[in-house]
Design a protein around this nucleic acid. Sequence first.
DNA 1: ACGATTTGACCAGC
DNA 2: GCTGGTCAAATCGT
Length: 234
Amino acid sequence: MVSNIDHKAMEALLRGQGCANSLKILLENGEISSVSTEPLINTILDSFSLALSFVDSPNPPPYYEKLCGAQGLVNYRDDSPIPCPNDGFAWRKYGQKTIKTSPHQRCYYRCTYAKDQNCNATKRVQKIKDNPPVYRTTYMGKHVCTASVGHDDTHSSKMIQFDQVVSELVMPQLTTIDHQVITMEDKVTHYIMNQECDIDINDYLVGYDQIWVNEFPPFPSDDTMFLDNIAAFD
DNA sequence: ACGATTTGACCAGC
DNA sequence: GCTGGTCAAATCGT
């Protein structure tokens, strides 16, 4: 008996295999110049990432079904719901706005227990890049509630934290922002980078030696691939 | 029925 | 007046 998860993983692998075969034929026939291979390559990578996510975790992220639907992988539309990565707290969405300086909408969350426990923690999540989807999460206030939901490892979320503290002498105007997270979403995988102030993420993509990895299992492939992906955002 | 989400309206700051 | 942040009624999902 094949489980539903195994079946989905198999589906993703077969899709990747089919695209790889198509790519092989194109390469053998020398048709690369006339046909764009990028969609094929992207589909292969997406399919394998998806399959790996099922192997890695039997419970895909909650937005997986929205990304892939019952029939399998579909394009991640810009109007798709912004995922809310599990950061150990319960959040309740209270607003969403189109921001003039960005083509994407910004979502507003506050602590689920804001009223019950007078917790003033809020966060904003905004998509800042399309391909791959990258989200900036800005945390405001501090959690005073005791109802942490804990970090959920059943999801295949993976995090990279940048834990540098930027001196207030450097950015005194940014001290009201407590914490910022950039989430890079590769279909089903979150890479989260934390910052202590509100600055452009590109400012932190310069030096790889500035990066340290936290809560990150061994990379399925290698670190340089991820670092290359980060650099590609600029 | 209840809690969460959506979305238009409202408000404050610039 | 414009923009971002919040409110609150309507709607949706379980």
